[in-house]
């Protein structure tokens, strides 16, 4: 149950490898310096637009209660205060939601790494009847909006007594079409000889998977982990439906709840947004190479 961020695996001829730029290619007329300046002014302006809402969020989160709703709206806190954050963690149990989000996203990440790598490996390297047809069938799942399955899935969880449990949130994300696709694309690049050599040496299939395939897949597994963790952390609709007890809310669900209850507390809401965003932003900044590769791999020729 992921949001719109997950790319579909519709095949298209997009080559990966953004980081390695090819040697010079003739492009726009070069050498005119005003062009370079103009271009950078434009790029900087776009960067300003991209950052401004987030910057204001951080700034407002340090403003004393009520001061963001004065006219004209202030840009910087005056004086800066930690009071909003203290309020969040003392009265509003945000630490509980932070913990819930971490548990849910962690469980989803761990299980989806395991199950998707297994299936992706099998789709890439085992020959069995109708393998590619089966894989294409699985890929069709990318065209089905997650909303379609939600109502029956909820009723299934009700029968399993998993409504209002983390298990209910985690279950539908433990294995995903996108994850299998991603791993498969990568594993296709591993030479068969390597695996066959291990078989000749008498290694069992699980051993080959565990000690040869997984280590070789490390880069794509990091990519998958970052991807899955972020979409699990950011996911909203499904946890909103499944979690009914506020003690179990994840951050986005809790935040949506808070924002309806505390409409007028601008500064407090901004602090809550910062707490929600900070983990994913930090994760992205430190692992963006892997994340961006995942996006381009989603579009790699299948």
């Amino acid at each position: 149950m992921t949001g719109a961020v997950i790319p579909s695996g519709v095949p298209a001829a997009v080559s990966a490898g953004l980081d390695e730029r090819p040697a010079r290619r003739p492009r726009w007329d070069t050498g005119v310096s005003w062009r370079t300046v103009l271009l950078h002014v434009l790029l900087a302006a776009i960067a300003g637009v991209a950052v401004a809402p987030l910057a204001w969020m951080v700034s407002a989160s340090f403003m004393p209660a009520g001061s963001a709703t004065t006219y004209p709206p202030p840009l910087l806190p005056h004086p800066a205060t930690w009071a909003n954050y203290r309020e969040l963690f003392s009265h509003l149990d945000l630490s509980r939601e932070l913990r819930n989000s971490a548990i849910v996203a962690g469980l989803i990440t761990a299980s989806s790494l395991l199950f998707n790598s297994m299936a992706g490996y099998a789709f890439a390297k085992f020959s069995f009847p109708a393998r590619d047809r089966l894989f294409r069938l699985v890929l069709l799942g990318l065209f089905i909006p997650p909303q379609v399955a939600m109502l029956p899935l909820f009723i299934l969880l009700r029968e399993l007594h998993l409504v209002n449990s983390f298990a209910g949130v985690v279950l539908p994300s433990m294995a995903t079409v996108f994850g299998m696709f991603l791993v498969r694309q990568y594993v296709l690049g591993i030479p068969d000889e390597l695996l066959d050599a291990a078989r000749v040496d008498g290694a069992g299939e699980l051993r080959i998977y565990w000690s040869i395939v997984l280590p070789l897949c490390a880069p794509v597994l990091v990519t998958l982990a970052v991807f899955v963790f972020m979409s699990a952390w950011n996911d909203f609709m499904w946890p909103l439906v499944v979690l009914t007890d506020s003690a179990k809310y994840t951050l986005p669900v809790g935040l949506a709840n808070l924002s309806r209850e505390h409409v007028q507390d601008t500064e407090l809401m901004m602090a809550a947004s910062v707490v929600t965003l900070l983990p994913v932003l930090l994760l992205f900044i430190s692992l963006q190479r892997y994340y961006i590769r995942g996006i381009t791999m989603g579009g790699v020729k299948g």
Binding site: A60, N234, F236, L251, A272, L277, V280, L281, F284
Partner: peptide
């Protein structure tokens, strides 16, 4: 990196921010 940062943000959180 800067252009991409909004992509990874939590939709609910930025929706709250934009509401203000």
């Amino acid at each position: 990196t800067v252009y991409f940062a909004p992509v990874v943000t939590t939709l609910v959180a930025v929706a709250v921010v934009w509401k203000y």
